[in-house]
Design a protein around this nucleic acid. Sequence first.
DNA 1: ATGACCTGAGACCAAAGGGTGAACGATGAG
DNA 2: CTCATCGTTCACCCTTTGGTCTCAGGTCAT
Lengths: 222, 222
Amino acid sequence: MLTAKQKELLLYIHERIKESGVSPSFDEMKEALDLASKSGIHRLITALEERGFLRRLPHRARALEVLKLPESAATAAPPKGRSTFRPSVVADGRSGMGIPILGQIAAGVPIEALQNEIGRIQAPDDLLGAGDHFALEVKGDSMIGAGILDGDVVLIKRTDTADSGDIVVALVDNEEATLKRLRKRGNSIALEAANPAYETRIFGPDRVRVQGKLVAMIRRYS
Amino acid sequence: MLTAKQKELLLYIHERIKESGVSPSFDEMKEALDLASKSGIHRLITALEERGFLRRLPHRARALEVLKLPESAATAAPPKGRSTFRPSVVADGRSGMGIPILGQIAAGVPIEALQNEIGRIQAPDDLLGAGDHFALEVKGDSMIGAGILDGDVVLIKRTDTADSGDIVVALVDNEEATLKRLRKRGNSIALEAANPAYETRIFGPDRVRVQGKLVAMIRRYS
DNA sequence: ATGACCTGAGACCAAAGGGTGAACGATGAG
DNA sequence: CTCATCGTTCACCCTTTGGTCTCAGGTCAT
């Protein structure tokens, strides 16, 4: 999934943001990876973004956000809080084992994120109708206008159809899963964020696959 | 995601709001960052808004709201509100019947509303800690800035104490229950909506009684 | 060796970040 | 209405940063 350099850079960025709250500039990354030119950094960043590990605002200084870390964030990186979770214990005969939280979702998160269970949430089954459901933790602020904030957990019903106006998990080009409002525009499909900072993206019908439909949202306050 | 200046300003704004409940004016921010002109502040604010850290109402005085803090709110202020979601281990059975929804709540709802149960919701008990809980349906848009919309169901833990900054159910003059963010201002108590269209109301300590504290929120999509 | 391909080096440029000062406009209280 | 407060915008300036381009050196399979 990642080359050694990409992983190194990603971990460095993550480290810097965690420590200082400020993302590094291209020049700083250049120094950190011991390069003399930032053109390489540029290529690495692009690759990381394409693979869904990073998000950035183009043409903005220090506008990087780490969306997820490589599987083995092994390098001494103290686990991100969530990793302390131990899914094992849950075996009390009752059917209420909760439904799986399959990962984080935002603009730019690849499908792989939907494979690994990162936790479970006990969802009241009166929220769930029939059908298969899963949950995702929302990363980022792209749906802020719809009252869905960073860190919220959304409950998704697995389906491959949705109506215009529904909020869905959509897979674009088999690569990138994203939570957006779906609009049908003639033959095309528009994926619309609830945040003016993000622009609506329009795709041909064959590039977008609906993976599920938002049925509920749960937020917890500390 | 942020530059150093942007972070500095964001933390300052957050600090000010947390302390006084009132967002600083452009001039005050100018002073705080040691600038001679406030147009720089304006640009920083714009950048923070674009990056999703702030929300504001244009042409309104002191109408800023901090939506999220940088990953490292390094300055000794880790409380980071509602941080990464941590699914806790599923406990034993749920208390079967769910918890009661006691009514709707908004500005202007009389206490009586808290007596009649209008429904029940099955709440995942990993959202609930110890203690007595109840639920309310939110009416109105007074907390829209905190991502709480009309029709949402909020889970409240019964308590009569709360910290400044908590979202609470407060009873004013034994008459009117309302869901607001609580601020302690010296001896007085401010109840603050997350919607600049509503103004913050300030009361003497004897006029406000905290009835509970927001612990979670559930929204269902049709 | 040859060419395709990758990566880093270095230079260059356009644009964003940020500071200043002044003028302009909207808001809200009296 | 009038006025003070406060947000908004503009022009001007310099610095920082991101994006791009070309070139030079590797690696690898043919």
